[in-house]
Amino acid sequence: MDKSEIKGFIAKRCAKELKNGDVVNLGIGLPTMIPRYLPEGVELVIHAELGIVGAGANPKEGDANYMPYHVTDAGGAPASVAFDGSFADSASNFGLIRGGHVDACFLGALEVDMEGNLANWIIPGKKMPGMGGAMDLCTGAKKCIVCMEHTAKGNPKIFEKCRLPLTAARCVNKIITEMCVLEVTDKGLMMTEINPEFTVEDVKAATACPVLVADDLKSMI
């Protein structure tokens, strides 16, 4: 698989996590591809950091709902609200996040570990981004699902213990990569599904912590 195929493969698997009516927050990059792969009959309520509960598609210039000065997303791009959605101020909107009213958040990671710790907001000494809403989302969403390529330039991203500053501790429920699906359990990471292109040994070699294998290991496809 090339890069874009890998991303599509991961997004497609992520889409299977969702059921009709789920309230979800999608991080930048790969997670925004998830809605393309939703099974028929599954509609999501997209929660956006900027204060949209029930976001619509990103409008283009010329569309009736194109309002680049008044309705934007967390990247500054023109956004829209669904016909049955609403707007909220930041305090209320993050109250919804921390209060457990968001069913799932999907986001990428720089590092994730076997305890479910997540690091995805800063590499000390490199450019300064800021955590934005990521810490609240990982802490408050009912499910936190990391979706990412299993390794970065061949180097592992899944460790016994994250080395980078954490976004949130013990927050990740599931890790979905092009190689496998890992569930965070009390005993460590449990592989429940594998991409048949890889062997269990391949996964273990690409992961810098022990990987438990479920008795009923399934195919990702």
Partner: peptide, 15 residues
């Protein structure tokens, strides 16, 4: 000088 806070925390501290 830069002080970074989580978005929900900044909103709530101001509130």
């Amino acid at each position: 000088e830069v002080f970074l806070l989580p978005q929900g925390t900044l909103a709530e501290c101001i509130r």
